[in-house]
């Protein structure tokens, strides 16, 4: 492309549409985060359930320590991808801040210690909202449906005794994170 003047309106429109098409975001990077956090959550909920019900271990919640290396991996992977892409879109910004907001809400809920009985359902509600919004931003229906399914599972979890919310949450994450995550990767 050079600095020559444009000779027709068609040429102007062709340049504009071509550049818009070229700057379309590749969303495959988000699959990594959904798959990573999907497995971390499934292992966390299942492990917590098994340790709580089938062992004498006094601190079954300790299984969630796996979230610490996962968070570091997620952070460094995201930073590496951002550096490689050499451009930054409004969609990237919205998605990042949606998940930062999710994390802030999650930390407040967990460390308040006030929502012990309904914590898993509340986590699913927040995860559903963040996943739903991410699906809307990247215009990917499986993620929108996955996020909505997390709300349904949250409602189910709210109606169950605390102990049974763990397997429900693990299954919800398979539907809400893992299936859409692998679908994004495949596409």
């Amino acid at each position: 492309m050079n600095t020559e003047q444009i000779t027709s309106t068609e040429e102007s429109l062709a340049i504009i549409t071509d550049m818009i098409r070229q700057t379309k975001r590749n969303v495959s990077g988000s699959a990594f985060h959904f798959i990573l956090w999907g497995w971390v959550s499934v292992i966390g909920f299942t492990g917590h359930f098994l340790l709580m019900n089938y062992t004498d271990f006094a601190h079954p919640y300790a299984i969630w320590a796996i979230a610490i290396p996962a968070w570091l991996i997620s952070f460094f992977y995201g930073r590496k991808k951002a550096r490689e892409s050499r451009m930054y879109t409004y969609a990237d910004k919205l998605i990042i801040w949606t998940w930062v907001a999710f994390t802030v809400c999650l930390v407040i809920l967990i460390f308040s210690g006030l929502f012990f009985q309904h914590l898993n359902a509340l986590v699913l509600l927040l995860a559903g909202m963040a996943t739903f919004i991410t699906g809307l931003i990247i215009r990917y229906n499986p993620l929108i449906i996955g996020g909505s399914s997390l709300w349904v599972f949250a409602a189910i979890a709210l109606s169950l005794p605390y102990m049974y919310t763990f397997p429900v949450a693990a299954f919800a994450i398979i539907c809400g994170y893992l299936i859409p995550g692998y679908m994004i990767r495949k596409n």
Binding site: E11, I15, T23, Y88, Y90
Partner: peptide
């Protein structure tokens, strides 16, 4: 051509 292309790209990204 080139300046319009640059502006079209920057309209679409942060």
């Amino acid at each position: 051509q080139l300046r319009l292309a640059i502006m079209s790209i920057l309209m679409n990204v942060d």
